[in-house]
Simulated scan of single mutants.
Amino acid sequence: MAIAPVVNAIRVLERMVPPGQLLFDHHAHDLRGTRTGTGSLTVHSLGVRVEDFITWANQEATAHGLEVIPPDPHGRIGTERFRRSLAWHIARRPGGLVALAIQYGHLRTSVAAGYAARSRDGIHDLLDVETARATIDTVADLNAALENGLGISGPAARRAIKAAATAPQYTGTVITARQARQILANPQLAVYENPHTLLMCVYKRAKALCCHRGPKDTPSLDQCVPGCANIARTDQHAVGLRHYATALDQQAGRVPGPLGERLHDNATRLRDLADAHDRTRTTLRDGIA
């Protein structure tokens, strides 16, 4: 599970090294060739490569008039900080926890837990911390928007508002692995933004319709079911629904009859959802606690 640039990079590496060798085999990548024996590039060498990449990226950005990567006040990035930066971005995408676990080498299971903690520098702690941070970011953004008059609707709207109200106690704090586990175990903070379906999942296991194979601790965001009791929508989602409906109508005009009709029907359905939100939306000023 990876985005296209990662897949392309792996394919390039596979062509750079002999069959059956490590992707970062030091014989293929160490241009000085001073090291004997087998193995991959060292952590130090990879850290140097990260710095070289930043230098190259800034040169390209300057040449094309784009924003450059600013100097880091904490010094060199290094492999560990680079790993955490990647984890931060992956964890904040839909399904990010699963993608993060797969890309970093382990699923969060009791079988892998002990091995991962020893050999992967506590990968499960990393997963927990980044997932907790993403959760706090979601409820903090929602809290700020609600304070500014954002409207919210749906069967889970009240639970979303209550979750958002807890955000200030976490905002700006350094989250440790222990605190992360406490946050993830708090059912009131189980709020997941799902931009692909233009909704927010305020997950409650007993009400979830996405769990076809029994209850789970997290939702399946790629299997959202209309009418689920965990759904909430905001004004921003309603705007997105209408934009998407317009795009579908435009696409419908360029395809054959039956397919075009189906696209028009989907566009109508999305506008109906947006209209339903407008009719039922509530705000903090309405006295909802």
Rank of each mutant, 00 (worst) to 15 (best):
H44T: 07
T79A: 03
A99C: 11
D286P: 01
R81E: 06
I231K: 14
K207G: 01
R49N: 05
S40R: 15
D286C: 10
V174T: 13
L41E: 12
T176V: 14
G151M: 02
P226N: 10
H29K: 00
A61C: 07
D137W: 08
A140N: 12
R242K: 13
G214H: 09
L209D: 14
H74N: 10
A99G: 08
S85N: 05
R15G: 00
G287I: 15
T166V: 08
P71G: 05
V174L: 10
R181N: 07
R76W: 00
V12P: 00
R84E: 04
P70G: 08
P187K: 04
H26V: 03
A274G: 13
H237E: 15
D125K: 00
A185L: 01
Q182C: 00
A247M: 10
H27A: 11
D275T: 05
R205Q: 15
H106V: 01
H89W: 12
Q251K: 15
Y192H: 14
D25T: 03
L248W: 10
R158W: 02
Q103V: 11
R269F: 12
R279I: 06
T42F: 05
R76Q: 02
S45I: 02
V111I: 09
D52S: 11
K204A: 14
R15P: 00
L13I: 13
P19M: 04
N194I: 07
K204I: 12
S119I: 05
R49T: 09
G227W: 08
R205S: 15
I136D: 02
E60D: 12
E147P: 01
V239C: 03
A180E: 01
V239E: 13
R11C: 02
H89G: 01
R158Q: 09
R76F: 03
A164L: 08
A160L: 08
G214W: 13
V139S: 02
D128N: 04
H29D: 03
F53N: 02
P73Y: 04
G114Y: 10
I123E: 02
T246Y: 01
G227K: 03
G96F: 03
T36G: 10
A113K: 06
I90V: 14
G95E: 06
V111R: 07
L273F: 04
M1A: 10
C228V: 07
S110T: 13
T131I: 01
D137S: 04
I183H: 00
L66P: 01
S85P: 00
R93A: 13
A165V: 11
T173N: 08
I54C: 10
R93Q: 15
L150M: 15
T197R: 12
G20D: 00
G149R: 13
H74A: 06
Q188M: 04
L13W: 15
D235V: 01
T34H: 08
A9G: 04
A113F: 10
L46P: 05
S119N: 14
V202W: 14
E51G: 07
